[in-house]
Nucleic acid binder design. Structure first.
Lengths: 149, 149
DNA sequence: ATTTATTATTTGCAAAATGCAAGTATTAAA
DNA sequence: TTTAATACTTGCATTTTGCAAATAATAAAT
């Protein structure tokens, strides 16, 4: 029985490095944090500030400022919610969408690079395993979800 | 063909949450960063400051200060290298070892919790997959290793 | 044997990121 | 129509960061 924790520690650290490396698109320099925010805004359907902060597990006041920065960089747009004036709806600007897409492609390239060292069967197994893992973590209440405050 | 990046994004985010939650032992409050440092010092055999900074991909000046903090907290000990006086050897104090061990146990508990939602076969498959992934990432030079510079 | 480079680590400093407490504005509940 | 709750923002004060430069020690070159 091998050391489980070590296995995961190494894996997550490596993905962390991946994140660190790949975050400058054209002239714009995007931090990892910002890239994750862009990713989530793109993925969620017109989310509010609160919603994205929640999924990323970031303090809301910090997140508010992060959004301000992204708006200033002209990557994100804040639109008042039509029915509830307290809420702001987030979306990507054209430039933001471009940056998000480019980062996404980079990430895909990296991942394909990683998978190029496996045969098709191994690749399928690994992908299936990550899915299993995600499902299992979703079921585990006392860890792996948004940090408790 | 499903979205590979999303799969990995979710997984690493979840492990990030895991890290965020589990880092206070007894009275001592240890940040994730500090817990990773303790982990590496424990794992590597009498590493130098430089070595650990390298594996964690942290700027050396920042890391120097992190070590100072851990020394002040009485979790880490700095010993001058006998042959090369420029170098400091890092080791855990008794208390540091205790903290590291406790965190390790917590992590193992969390992981077991996650795996409890799988059957034995799935568990084996997932573990084998993580290993495959780590090996593949190690082979991939243009990502997943210590940030360049 | 001295000068010159390298290496390991530390500080100065200034910029950036964080989070709590408190604020505003708006909506929902009593 | 007062009271409570929600979504978001700002004021601070603290912490974290990293570059440039300093220090100290070893290695290489002359």
């Amino acid at each position: 029985m091998e050391n489980l924790r070590e296995l995961f520690q190494i894996m997550t650290r490596r993905f962390g490095f991946l994140d660190k490396n790949c975050c400058s698109v054209g002239g714009v320099n995007v931090s990892i944090i910002h890239s994750h925010i862009l990713y989530e805004i793109d993925k969620q359907h017109h989310p509010s500030i609160q919603q994205v902060a929640e999924t990323l597990g970031t303090d809301i006041t910090t997140f508010s400022r992060q959004i301000q920065a992204l708006v200033k960089m002209n990557l994100v747009k804040k639109t008042p919610h039509p029915d509830d004036k307290r809420v702001y709806i987030l979306s990507l600007t054209v430039e933001g969408k471009y940056v998000a897409t480019t980062i996404d492609q980079q990430m895909k390239t990296y991942l394909n690079d990683v998978f190029s060292h496996m045969n098709e069967f191994e690749k399928e197994t690994v992908i299936r395993s990550i899915k299993l893992l995600n499902e299992a973590m979703a079921k585990t209440s006392n860890c792996c979800t948004t940090p408790m405050r």
